Computed example of a mutant assay.
Amino acid sequence: MTSTTPAAITWRRRRAAAATVWRQFLRDRGGVVGLVVLVLIIGLALLAPVLTDAAGLDPTQATGGRLQPPSGTYLLGTDELGRSVLLQLWWGARISLLVGVLATLVSVGIGTLFGVATAHFGGWVAAVLTRATDFFLVLPSLVLAIALSTVLDRGIFAIVLAIGVTSWPTTARLVRAQTLSVESRPYIERAWALGAGHLHVIGRHVLPAVLPLVFANTTLTVASSIIAESTLSFLGLGDPSAASWGTMLNSAMLSGAVTFGAWWYLLPPGLAIAVIVLAFMVCGRALESVLNPRLRER
């Protein structure tokens, strides 16, 4: 027997909406291909400790020659310390994805908080938060992230913090616009008339309507965060003890891989960054076209 309680009805509607979104997403071939690529890369990154030996990343245990070209033993050759480039590429996916996801969570969390508060409360609260958002929008986010990375102790979480606290204004503006649209609807006015408070309106009405669009924007933000992490690591501001794709490019530059013609040391991390960023982008665009009412109408 089907339950008719309000909570059960709400969950049935949400499951039906999620199923509809999934069916519409599957119609986008680019989004499906991007999702398959992401699942494959994330799966390989998670299985790295099971399928490979992390000891191969230790320079003291390297057995290959310096900048050795691809061979049967080293499929992608070796670096300047004799370590497998393929092994570094595999483990580097873990760091790049970890930093990208964590920085995105920080960025989206701050942006959602600022966006909802700016649109909901108005008055002096909106004025202060809008000025703060405009301040971060004017400043180049990469330059600010570089400045923060040089001040903070070098490490993964310093990179996460530097990227997260400099890349949230875009999300804040998106959430603010969506919140203003939601709060102009009649059922919000009825909620206020019935005595609803700020927490009830935000938690029960605003956030459920805003979060789908935030989720679509999150996939795009992950791609930007991965590029930012790779850029900071390439500039030598990442964690030198952690293998990431940006760190690999930095090491290749410092070791003279270009001079030696060691393309196997330069191309794999660069292509990996391009592939995963492209996969996140096409998935994000596909989700945005499904979840954004304006794009869906077009």
Score class of each variant (00 low, 15 high):
M1T: 06
T2G: 00
S3R: 00
T5H: 03
A7Y: 11
A7S: 13
W11I: 12
R13F: 01
R15F: 01
A17C: 03
T20E: 10
V21Y: 02
W22F: 09
R27S: 00
D28Q: 09
D28G: 01
L38E: 01
L40C: 05
I41A: 01
G43M: 00
A48Q: 05
L51T: 14
T52M: 14
T52D: 15
A54E: 14
L57W: 12
L57S: 11
D58A: 09
P59F: 07
T60G: 12
Q61N: 15
A62Q: 12
A62C: 11
T63Q: 15
R66T: 13
L67M: 15
Q68R: 10
P69G: 05
P70I: 09
L76T: 08
D79N: 10
E80K: 06
R83Y: 07
R83F: 10
S84T: 07
Q88M: 11
L89Y: 06
L89G: 09
W91C: 02
G92N: 07
S96G: 10
L105Q: 03
V106R: 07
S107P: 03
S107R: 11
V108K: 10
L113T: 15
G115E: 08
G115P: 01
V116L: 10
G123S: 15
V125G: 02
A127Y: 14
V128Y: 12
V128G: 12
L129V: 02
F135M: 15
P140Y: 04
I146W: 03
R154F: 00
G155V: 00
I159S: 10
V160W: 07
L161D: 09
L161N: 04
V165G: 10
W168F: 07
L174A: 11
L174K: 08
L174S: 04
A177I: 13
A177R: 13
E183K: 15
S184L: 14
R185Q: 13
P186L: 12
P186Q: 15
E189H: 10
E189V: 03
A191W: 08
W192D: 12
A196N: 03
G197Q: 12
H200E: 15
V201D: 14
R204A: 11
H205N: 14
P208I: 12
A209W: 12
A209I: 06
V210H: 05
V210A: 07
F215N: 05
T218H: 07
T218Y: 06
T219A: 14
S224L: 09
S225W: 01
I226D: 01
I226W: 06
I227F: 10
A228Y: 09
S230R: 01
L232N: 04
G236I: 09
S241A: 06
S241F: 00
T247M: 15
M248F: 04
N250P: 01
M253V: 14
M253D: 15
A257C: 09
A257H: 03
T259W: 00
T259C: 00
F260S: 15
G261R: 02
A262V: 09
Y265Q: 14
Y265M: 15
P268L: 08
P269W: 03
L271I: 13
A272Y: 06
I273T: 06
I273V: 13
V275Y: 00
M281W: 03
G284C: 02
E288S: 13
S289D: 14
V290L: 04
P293T: 05
P293Q: 07
L295G: 05
E297V: 11
R298P: 08
